[in-house]
Nucleic acid binder design. Structure first.
Lengths: 229, 229
DNA sequence: CATTTAATTTATCAATCGATCATTTTAATG
DNA sequence: CATTAAAATGATCGATTGATAAATTAAATG
């Protein structure tokens, strides 16, 4: 519980510095709020956020209608910055074997997102109101996990069916969730984890690819040739 | 934000019921506190806890020195109730194949612990202060995951070495963490998940057993025959 | 039934919370 | 330099927080 002590003013100079461009101010506030909420949760005080910026608390209410509005802005900021547009194309580049493709992706994805701030805010958000996290999980499912199933099935010569059944999703979540829990242990709980993140990712993918064929076969029995649903 | 409205008293009867045995009162308070903290987090108010019990707020301070003391009692309650003593022996019963043994265990462990209250308090606790969760994770590692490695190695004829290296732990955490994330999605995020929990567990174990031999070989190269460390 | 112990309540305090409004002050404008 | 729009502060409000102390009352004791 150490004092943050934003500015050590020596009583000689007023140190009155003000006036930032609104866009910059908004960005700074959201950034400080994200840091603060990541540390103490969304019950954290607005005065502490202001203190981080060297600014008074009522100023926040000039840029956000209320605390919930600020929290929502933090949600958007954290989640929108967590996806690199180039990943979309990368995951569908069939010039690269599926296994290599997803290992490269996860190395970058984890490097980019698995830090205390992102992880803590994600879990705080999930506990606060599930909707935001539901939305993000839907994104993960659509952008990563379903792609993994489709691309892998294709590489195995099982056709180009776009539909992925809930039964096929579960093992992909098992892999993804296991990696998330690796981040939880390393960056939230501060527990000693394997030093070689690349190997952790490689093993997680190996585990999935080992049972994936069985899962695909289970989901699409060969005796029936109808579509889905 | 609906009112809980603990007791509908019709103004005719005073309904003054009091005096519980201290041990019962303590148990009730901890139970109500666990429920409340599980819902809103440890920033939840002490008055709300009292309201759940139909009791006034200062009463809590007769049985607990302060809010932190109550939280600590909730920690202990939730975690101590989460381990069945019979599991210890069950995991070491070599009359049953390792695969069956751990599948049976996980079915019961998940049935017993994967509920909104236990999961939410676990994650809230991890975010609040890592130490409690570190302690519990150590327990999981000692009681479940290291046993899995030892028993599996034994069944594969790889000897009875008790030591399990950090490198060997990681894939077991990948499996366990994946299952935890399944609970997170199902009971915290309220997302649709596979209906057949048994199959989820089976697949998770299949994924682990598929790469385990490789991991054991990696951890104990055959050219050198020294112990560990 | 009278006495006593302690479980419980009533009343209350100081601190902190999110939020509002009038005022001050910065910096761009002509 | 005077004017002006708005960025930022100071002061403050009502509600809620954890916590304390005195008064009340239920239940055990003799």
């Amino acid at each position: 519980m150490a004092e943050t002590d934003q500015k050590e003013l020596s009583e000689s100079e007023p140190v009155k510095r003000r006036r930032k461009a609104p866009e910059d101010r908004v960005r700074d506030i959201v950034d400080a709020a994200a840091d603060h909420f990541a540390e103490v949760g969304f019950a954290g005080g607005t005065r502490d956020i202001a203190k981080r910026l060297g600014v008074t608390q009522p100023l926040l209410y000039r840029y956000f209608p209320d605390k919930d509005g600020l929290i929502e802005a933090v949600y958007k900021s954290v989640y929108l910055e967590s996806w690199k547009p180039e990943w979309d194309a990368g995951l569908q580049d069939r010039a690269i074997p599926v296994r290599r493709r997803f290992e490269d992706f996860y190395r970058d994805y984890i490097e980019e997102n698995f830090n205390p701030r992102w992880l803590r805010i994600s879990y705080f958000a999930g506990l606060r109101d599930a909707k935001v996290n539901q939305w993000y999980n839907h994104l993960v499912e659509e952008l990563i996990l379903k792609q993994l199933v489709r691309e892998h099935r294709n590489e195995l010569g099982l056709g180009d069916e776009a539909y992925v059944s809930p039964e096929e999703m579960e093992p992909t979540w098992q892999m993804h969730g296991g990696l998330l829990h690796f981040g939880w242990r390393r960056h939230v709980l501060d527990l000693p984890t394997a030093s070689d993140t690349g190997q952790v990712i490689g093993d997680a993918l190996d585990m999935y690819f080992a049972i994936a064929p069985k899962v695909y076969a289970r989901a699409a029995p060969k005796d029936v040739d109808n579509g889905h649903e």
